[in-house]
């Protein structure tokens, strides 16, 4: 079993483990942020470049450093490898650059975006970005389109992580959407206004790290931080039936897959569970979900007072020493970059 050292912490991992997975085994601050990698999807990762790290020593056998930063999500650990993430100032700076690239054409319309509060890009920008943008040109925009009765595609917000494409490819029969055009004109599309229609189509919403694919049945119903997530299950003939219900005032506003602490889906769910079972009585309730968001308020803490904000941050493993502005702003995701 190869041993790898990440930010001065050594760990032994199974053969074939990637640097990102090894870092997640260590946990805490050594874990690089990942926007396009998704553990349940094969061949995901490598696109966004937020997870880049520096390999100071390639391996015991070949100790040469790697000439360029590598995507930790797609780089396999070698025995004796020495990796730097947070402890390499050039990586921290390079990552801030990636964040800036991801944001220059992003609309920053968090106040009207359903994803706000559970958006990976929001979290990323907050933790790894800088406080202002140097981009002063017009941002690229696209028309919003409805791809079927359940899904809204808001391409302007997309960061081209390819997760939805891989989800459709890997868990549904016959994908009808993909990336068309090239460069910064590239867009996710069904090409000739097709409808994404199959039993598992709703999963593309859950894997989208931003608000590009949203649930039309939940659209503008509530800010997510005013809803309360509970884990529930039912006997479903099609999928695992293990879901997360998002309740407000006893009403189920939305059903999603459960996500782990990295925002990645634990198991994909079918459309029946997602759209047709919106009564609490359809479900066996397990209890409040543990939602481990980095920057945004954790589950069931929504009504917490301003004063506990710093505690939350410590619990959720936020970088220490980062200045926390107390006051409404710190708790309101709409104010985050």
């Amino acid at each position: 079993m190869p041993k790898v050292t990440i930010d001065d912490i050594e760990i032994e991992v199974p053969d074939g483990t990637t640097i990102l997975q090894a870092a997640r085994m260590i946990g805490g601050e050594v874990v690089p942020p990942a926007m396009c990698y998704h553990s349940k999807l094969k061949t995901s990762g490598g696109y966004c470049r937020t997870c880049i790290v520096k390999v100071e020593k390639g391996s015991e056998k070949d100790p040469r450093p790697m000439p360029k930063p590598v995507p930790s999500c797609r780089t396999t650990v070698m025995d004796g490898m020495v990796v730097r993430n947070k402890t390499a100032p050039d990586i921290v700076e390079a990552r801030a650059g990636i964040v800036e690239f991801l944001l220059i054409n992003h609309p920053l319309d968090c106040p009207v975006c359903d994803q706000a509060g559970e958006c990976d890009l929001q979290d990323l920008a907050y933790e790894h970005g800088k406080s202002h943008s140097r981009y002063d040109f017009q941002r690229r925009t696209f028309e919003k389109i409805d791809i079927g009765e359940h899904i809204k595609l808001h391409m302007t917000r997309c960061i081209l992580c390819y997760r939805c494409v891989k989800t459709a490819e890997q868990i549904t029969d016959g994908r009808v959407h993909g990336v068309i055009y090239r460069g910064d004109a590239a867009e996710i599309s069904t090409y000739i206004q097709n409808v994404i229609d199959n039993d598992f189509s709703g999963n593309v919403i859950d894997v989208c790290p931003v608000g590009a694919l949203t649930d039309r049945t939940f659209r503008f119903k509530s800010r997510v931080w005013f809803t309360k997530p509970v884990d529930a299950h039912r006997d479903c003939p099609k999928c695992s039936g293990q879901v997360r219900l998002w309740e407000k005032g006893g009403e189920v506003l939305r059903v999603t897959a459960r996500k782990d602490k990295y925002g990645e889906v634990e198991s994909f769910i079918c459309n029946e569970c997602r759209y047709d079972k919106k009564n609490a009585s359809d479900w066996v309730i397990e209890g409040p979900s543990k939602v481990d968001r980095h920057s945004v308020i954790g589950a069931n803490h929504y009504e917490n007072s301003v004063l506990s904000a710093t505690d939350d941050r410590q619990q959720t493993g936020l970088p220490h020493g980062k200045k926390v502005e107390l006051g409404e702003g710190a708790l309101n995701p709409n104010n985050i970059y």
Partner: peptide
């Protein structure tokens, strides 16, 4: 900028920015 395939964020976004 015109020839970037658009897969990775630094090239997709950075080439257009430099051109502008």
């Amino acid at each position: 900028h015109h020839e970037s395939c658009g897969q990775c964020s630094p090239c997709r976004e950075g080439t257009g920015w430099m051109e502008k």
